[in-house]
Every structure is written in C-alpha cells, then in structure tokens.
Amino acid sequence: MVPVTGGPLTALPGTVGAMGVLLLRTTRAIVRTPLAFGPELVSQIAFAMRVGWMPLVLAAVAMSYGPAGIQAAGFLNLVGAIDRMGGLFSITVIREFAPLVCAIVMAGVAGTAMCADLGARKIREELDALSVLGVDPVTNLVVPRFLALIVVTMIFNVYALIFGTLAGLLVAVVNGSSAGVFFHSYFDNAATLEVLASFVKTAIFGGIIAIVCCYKGLTAEGGAAGVGRAVNQAVVLTFLAIGLVDYAFTQALLALSPELSATR
C-alpha cells in the first residue's frame, strides 16, 4: 500500500481508487486458500464487541428516545394519534436509526482503534518485517478485520433494534399509550423486507468502515503526528461515506419497493 500524495481534494480520487484495490485484494483473499485468518478473526470480533457494546446501547437509546421518540410523540399527541407510535417506530428504527447508530459507533470506536493499531504496526515497520517473512498483510491483517467488522456491525444491529424499540416503548408509555397498543401497531407495520434491507445496509457499512480504516492504517506515515493524523482522516472519510451510501441505499430501496411506503 503506497499512500496517495497531494492536497485533500486532489488526493481524493486516488485514495478512493486505492481503497477499491484494497477491497478487491481483500475479497480475493477471503475465498482463496489457505484460510489462515481464523484465530485473528475471533480475537477481532471479541475486541470490536468489547469496546463497542456500551457506546452502542447508549447511542441506540439516545437516538430513538430523542429524535424519533420525543419529537414524534409530541406531534402525535397533538393530533391524538399516539397509538400509531409503534408503526412509526418500526419504520424509523429498522430503516434508519439502527443501521446508522451501528455504523457511527463501529466507525468511531472499533474502526478508529483498528486504524491506530495497524498504523502503529506500520510505523514500527512490523508490516515490512511481515512482508519480508512472506506474510501478506492483506490476507493476515485486513481480511480478519474486514470480516469481523461486517459480522459485529450486523450483530450490533440486532441490539440497536432491540434497544431502539425499548426506548420507543418507554416514550410511548411516558406519553400515556400502552405497551400492547405500541406493539400491535409495531408488528402491523413491520415488514420482512425492511428488516432484511436493514441488515444488508449494516453489512455494507461494516465493510466500508473496515476498508477505509485499514487503508488509512496501512498507509500511515512516520513522524510524531502520523498515526493520529491517519485515524483523523479515516474517521472523517468513513463518516462521509456512511452519509452518502445511506442516502443512496435508502433512496434505491424506497424507489424499488413502493410497498414499504404503505401504512398498515
């Protein structure tokens, strides 16, 4: 991996291209024998879950209780339709907030840590030493992180859904609705395709986080500020990519499946 030089704008196309190359090499290494990444994969999954669970629970509850819960409950109370709260939640949480919260937390907590870790190995020349020994950094370091982030982001989506829904239930109950009414409306409006799309989206987010953070870690340059700078750029690029992909994905999903926009 050779870092792309130039200003932030002139280097962007080259950086995106280099990340594409890294993605190709990673996917090729996943299916090619020998599959030597097992133990590293397990330790990365354990690592990502350990650092991420607490921010994830807090973020999922905050995102659902605040933006989706309080704002919507206030409005629905005014129009006397607080019983529709569950249906609203099954759409907003499954479609939008759960994947977004997972992506933000995994990028901010696990992605940055992985980038710092790889950057540290790069500037201590451990990666060069590995290459000399004939160990490919992509096969042995990037592939397990790529798979681990995809898996953990998808697992965390389950928890984001659960805690987001619980936060919605809390708002509904606080505003004078009842749990039975909330879940009745919730499951009336829940669609299998919506849940499926939610998990596909989180998988894409996990892959983006892994590729961007690993690329920036592998191309960290020396100097005192090198690794810190790499983490900084990695998280900025990840957030931008998440925002843009989220828009494109949701738009494509809603346009291709108009049945999702029906109120039941």
Binding site: M54, G108, V109, T112, A116, A120, G222, G223, V235
Partner: peptide
C-alpha cells in the same frame, strides 16, 4: 507516536458517548 494514535481512537469513543 503509537500512543498518539491510541489517544486519538479513545477520544473518538468518548465523543460518541458524550454527543449522544
């Protein structure tokens, strides 16, 4: 330099919690 990278990553985790 490794410590700077770790501190950067840690600050991001604290920020995520604080912002929410």
């Amino acid at each position: 330099p490794v410590g700077v990278g770790t501190a950067t990553a840690r600050s991001m985790a604290v920020n995520i919690v604080g912002i929410h």
